[in-house]
Design a binder for these strands. Sequence first.
RNA 1: GGCGGUAUCGUCUAGGGGUCAGGAUAGCAGAUUCUCAUUCUGUUGACACGGGUUCGAAUCCCGUUUCCGCUACCA
Length: 485
Amino acid sequence: MTDIRVRIAPSPSGNLHIGTARTALFNYLFAKKNNGKFILRIEDTDAERTSQEYIDNIFDSLKALGLNWDEGPDVGGEYGPYTQSERFDLYPKYAQMLVEKGFAYECFCTPEELEAEKEEAGKNKQPYVYSKKCENLTEKQKESLRKEGRKPAIRFSISKAQKAFHDSNILAFDDLVKGNLHQDTSLIGDFVIMKSNGTPTYNFAVVIDDMLMKISHIIRGEDHISNTFKQILIYEALGADVPRFGHLGMILAPDRSKLSKRHGATAVSEFVEKGYLTDALVNFVALLGWSPSDSEEIKTVDEIAQDFDITKISSSNSIFEYDKLNWMNGQYIKKMDLTKLYDYAMPFLKKYDTSKYTKEQLIRILEVTREPITTLSELEFDTQYFFEKPDLSEVKELLESETSKKVLPYALDVINSWGFDSEEKLHEDMANYREYFKAQGIKPKETMWSFRAAVTGRTRGADMGAIVYLLGKDEIVDRIKTALK
RNA sequence: GGCGGUAUCGUCUAGGGGUCAGGAUAGCAGAUUCUCAUUCUGUUGACACGGGUUCGAAUCCCGUUUCCGCUACCA
């Protein structure tokens, strides 16, 4: 059996898209499950849209997701270079080989001529396929065209390849996720493989690269299905082994359109900026199409890899809804190691002067505020009262209530006896404080509402004992006094 | 338009000739807690449609429809 080698080949014309991340994940999982190699190739043929910033973003995002590659531009490998722009000298000779074998030919058509063909087809309501008028040009004709100053593109002859390797017009292959797929290739026009400027087109470059990099399985989005037929024919014409293909359904926005900026975040890095954990992101995105054989949905990438079977992936599109992502992210936040949480959370607390607390105290703050949150970005609001005086406008009414008028002054009376040197003691003291009013018919809940409102300006939040402990006696007294004014 | 793909709760999905069509999330209801949070419990909710085949179809077949993609000298 040949070595399993898969790849992800993003084009650095933007930050790493969540959809690309999912494709990368499935490739990674497939490689891990089958002891294969996962390869990263940067397809930067389109120089105008490429930037180093995007390349870095792709590297960083993939790493953050834990999708480490075995071969790639930075780590190298046997089949480099792994950046397409560094491979430009490779393509012409393969194109030439195809021309010599009769599977490709020079095309001198101008954009205007091509445009006219298309218009004509449109007028007659016929699907457009290239007319092949350059396929049988004589040397003489080519020479005179060249003299006119025309630079030829190279087109691939679909019909010749199809005839050479197949009995009918039908080209079929067995897709790893979709099963048998087929297409009448007489409906496909001869497409350009080398542009007149000497650079390869996508469909040609991928085949050459995948062939040279010995890619055994190509797992990608179903938007590539129609390209697959063209690519298979190129492999065959080149005399290369045809890899296995697997086409994944797309990720759609809730309105069933392509996931785009107007739906919110699209890049992995944007999700991270919004407070999503890469562990949660990767877990969530795996569940779009894949489902675990047991009922446990929260799993690490390694655990998923154990259970992964490309064949059992859903072949339909799936919609990206935040509901479940949010829930899952919350689960990860709740279970996260506290020092790790500290590292991840601090960037979201930039707005505040955190220097008045020790690292241990800050960790405690995070520990007591993490429970209800869904994204790390909520931390800014939820920890606000630890760093700033509370805004009492939202709880004005509550503070003016009868309960508050009894409960708050009394707190001031007894607070000196509270055990501020330990959180545990404070909990007891506050329990007694609640009991005192409970005896007077005020529910513990109500007592705490007033107290919490005075101290934090909120009606809900972290454990009150922890808040009082972390803020300290003087601050609490000061806040209650302010609230009573 | 042509070609290709797709179809199970709102969403992600499991299953698949005879199941109360299962789970997760969201929703709703209740319980616990100092907290309209968390957690826990319960609950609403689906086989796109029309024809076949069959004792029996959500499952198999045919057709329709939906939605998605492709239809470049972009990738």
